[in-house]
Design a protein around this nucleic acid. Sequence first.
DNA 1: GTCGGCATTAACGCATACATTAATGGACGC
DNA 2: GCGTCCATTAATGTATGCGTTAATGCCGAC
Lengths: 235, 235
Amino acid sequence: MIALAGYDETEDDPRPPRSSEAVYLKLKQAILDNRYPPGAQILESQIASEFEASRTPVRESFVRLQQEGLLEIVPRHGVRISALSPGDMREIYEVLMSLEPTAVELLVARRPDRAELSGLVRACDDMEKALAGPQPDLVAWAMADERFHMSLARLCGNKRLAAMILTVWDQAHRARMFTLSLRPLPLQSTAEHRAVVDAILAGDGERARDLYFAHRKRGGHELTTIIERHGIQRL
Amino acid sequence: MIALAGYDETEDDPRPPRSSEAVYLKLKQAILDNRYPPGAQILESQIASEFEASRTPVRESFVRLQQEGLLEIVPRHGVRISALSPGDMREIYEVLMSLEPTAVELLVARRPDRAELSGLVRACDDMEKALAGPQPDLVAWAMADERFHMSLARLCGNKRLAAMILTVWDQAHRARMFTLSLRPLPLQSTAEHRAVVDAILAGDGERARDLYFAHRKRGGHELTTIIERHGIQRL
DNA sequence: GTCGGCATTAACGCATACATTAATGGACGC
DNA sequence: GCGTCCATTAATGTATGCGTTAATGCCGAC
């Protein structure tokens, strides 16, 4: 199970747990984990009974998840889990090609010290470790890759920018996991991450931006190619 | 009153009007029109009685508007209308400097014909008209400016990108309207729009992107300067 | 006089009841 | 036999009630 995006909160909440929040988190995780297949129609009452809550918090979760693009509310017919078309994937990667290089540029402008980037370095280490053995652990690699990109988004110092990146990453999450075994071993990808970190540490914003853009473009192209070659229409 | 963003739907809805949708639209418009001042605390029941609906659709609207960044749900204390700090304005313009040039680049890549760009040209005409007379109509100019940018976002062919641009424009809407009378006459700005349209028609994606980036950067810088000079802390 | 604790109350979070709508199936007529 | 219309029903959209929380104000003690 991939850790949920956007949650690095260390403070434990002294307030009573809200049911609507719990439903939201669990439902989101279930969608990301592909426990509800894309295109599936779900009823409010079904989720309500599955999560042992009433329809009210379920509806609230539906609204939030619709805005995040993970499902679509069909009036009078519950919700439909979003299924990504090749066109959607193109959209997502166009957005990421715009936002992620900006994020890394902003991060460099902030002149982060080594300690701030330790999360990125650890993610790189984990990516390498995952591919090192005789049996590469692709899921572990994907988790570390995701950690790298999400950490970088959060480090950029622009909350809105970070939130947008995380949102579209979540949208693409299932597609990435699905195509994981169809793509070549991401050895080059891992090296590219290191190069980005080096450029950040060197304070070279332009190089970091260009490297990150190339990395994102290559990744997007790779995924698009796989989708086309396999004739995948929805995922 | 500025037209609500994201609504150019021509089809009239044959479905029965939903109260929650009406509340959402009216409340959003009220916030954009500054009828609820930034920082204001509002109760669910207050909105419910004002809009003659029950608390349920009001809560649903709150959730949607929170995700759009127009208000913040304070648990057990209703909502607080978002107030933008100078830092927020910086964030918004960083996002726009990233997304808007990408949008115009995508638009050029689509090779639009003159007819598709008629909305942009009309917006330029209206901007010029608004500034032409002896008494420049700044509100009319701002409306046309907003129309230009929103049309361009929608024309780019990437729904996600467009939605993100519209969202942050809405967030900045009040601040823009507020500072309208504090800035110099936007004569240069209007000319810059024309240049972007010309570059699009010429099929020169790189020039269009650079022009749009420069335009956005100048606009953001102008607004930031005004905010600093006047020591504005929240708007 | 001031500070702390308790009671009162107002508002929310959730559950549930009610109204509305759209779909499904059966029956009737052609 | 087939098509259409109506009734039934299931699920949503909205309203409302109930329990809980937190804030406010009062009272008593120090």
